[in-house]
């Protein structure tokens, strides 16, 4: 199983690199699709069918929207000239990245090793959750009972995204 996942990860990396360097934007979008669909197979191999269903559906819908957007555009990347202003911007961005990496590394050093969290909330969910929630599917039981706040936040994010799209894309004001 580890070999299969390694091969899939290799495919994903190749797809991502091709998506960045492709001349035509349509082939770039389709190469980005390789990453998503390989991730679906990875989820299935790692025994997470709930995530796999969500990933395959959302990947398909975003791919359709991206293809529709690319077909309507010029299908070519914008050419950017590199002048002194650009060089200053790029070097500033690199310095910021280095500083961030340094502080993240310091922060990660101070954390507990993987699997030994300071908060032990999740261990309470695992002990016979079906009897606690009455739900045969463990994941849904946790999502809608123990972690109701998380699901509410997720739904609120989608709601906000829809409102944002409606507000930003509207050109004529509503009467």
């Amino acid at each position: 199983m580890e070999l299969t996942i390694s091969i899939l990860l290799g495919f994903m990396i190749i797809g991502a690199i091709f998506a960045i360097h492709a001349k035509d934007l349509l082939s770039s979008v389709i190469a980005a699709g390789i990453v998503g669909y390989s991730l679906v197979i990875c989820f299935l191999l790692l025994k997470a069918p709930d995530l796999a269903i969500v990933q395959i559906v959302v990947e398909t819908i975003t791919l359709i929207i991206m293809v529709a957007v690319v077909i309507d555009s010029t299908r070519e990347e914008l050419k950017v000239k590199i002048d002194t202003q650009q060089i200053i911007n790029i070097s500033l961005a690199l310095i910021f990245m280095l500083v961030l990496v340094f502080f993240f590394a310091r922060a990660i050093e101070s954390l507990n090793p993987l699997g030994q969290h300071t908060l032990r909330m999740a261990s309470a969910y695992v002990g016979d959750p079906a009897a606690k929630t009455g739900s045969a599917n463990l994941v849904t039981g946790i999502l809608f009972d123990f972690r109701g706040y998380d699901t509410l936040g997720e739904a609120t994010i989608l709601f906000t995204a829809a409102i944002g799209v409606l507000t930003i894309l509207r050109i004529k004001g509503k009467k």
Binding site: V58, N137, V139, T140, E154
Partner: peptide, 16 residues
């Protein structure tokens, strides 16, 4: 609440 899936996945399929 019985099989894999749930509100989020099913809703995305309906939208599809």
């Amino acid at each position: 609440h019985l099989t894999p899936g749930g509100g989020f996945a099913g809703g995305a399929i309906l939208a599809g």
